[in-house]
Simulated assay, not measured.
Amino acid sequence: MQAINSILTPVDFSDNAGKIIEAAAYVAGTFKAELHLVFVAQTFEDYSGFFVPPINLPNLEEELFASAQQQMETYVEENRAMFAEAGVAHVTGKVLSGDIAEEILNYAAKKKVQLIIMGTHGYKGVERIMFGSVADKVVKSACCPVMTINPYREECEGHAV
């Protein structure tokens, strides 16, 4: 197995994202690896079979993308101390748009990351049924190992779950 110098972690800015990011920071610090945080904004094309888009849709997508980019920059800055404490010297925050799983996989291949660390749960309810599990798609198709973390599971203390 090759050295782990670069780790990718998808972020959805949910309440559970912090657990995933802390785990990713710990692993990145342990390996002295750079950490890439990625948020993927789905395009409205994914929903085209469900509604007729308004004419000003491109403007809305641009605004959502810009807002996500600002949120990513703020998120990285607000967690800078936690990253430093974990020993992560280099953190990159990137916002992409498109199919979530495909964009994660493309970014991982492009940046030649050696490990993806992501949550097992993101979408809930109807959206998950419609779009499937992003983690499942990434695990099955990734060009590198994928570590998944269930953010809803309580930490185990020496006993089977």
Rank of each mutant, 00 (worst) to 15 (best):
V88I: 02
A84Y: 02
E85I: 05
Y75G: 09
T74I: 04
E78S: 10
E78I: 04
N59H: 13
T92G: 05
E61P: 04
E63V: 13
E62K: 11
Q71Y: 01
A81F: 00
A86Q: 06
V91P: 10
V91C: 08
F65N: 07
R80D: 14
N59Q: 15
E73S: 13
E61H: 04
L64D: 11
V76E: 04
A84Q: 14
A89S: 15
E61F: 00
E78N: 10
Q70H: 08
T74V: 05
Q71P: 06
K94G: 10
M72A: 11
Q70K: 10
Q71G: 08
Q69C: 12
E78P: 04
E61I: 04
N79Y: 00
A89R: 14
Q69M: 08
M72V: 11
K94H: 11
T92I: 09
F83E: 09
A81T: 13
F83Q: 08
H90A: 14
A68F: 03
N59T: 15
L64S: 14
M82N: 10
Y75T: 07
N79M: 02
H90M: 12
E77N: 07
G93S: 07
Y75I: 07
F83M: 05
E85K: 11
A81V: 10
L60V: 15
Q69T: 12
A81N: 11
K94C: 11
E61G: 03
V88F: 00
E63T: 15
E63D: 12
A66Q: 03
E77Y: 01
G93C: 07
E63M: 10
G93P: 07
L60Q: 11
E77M: 06
T74H: 00
V88M: 02
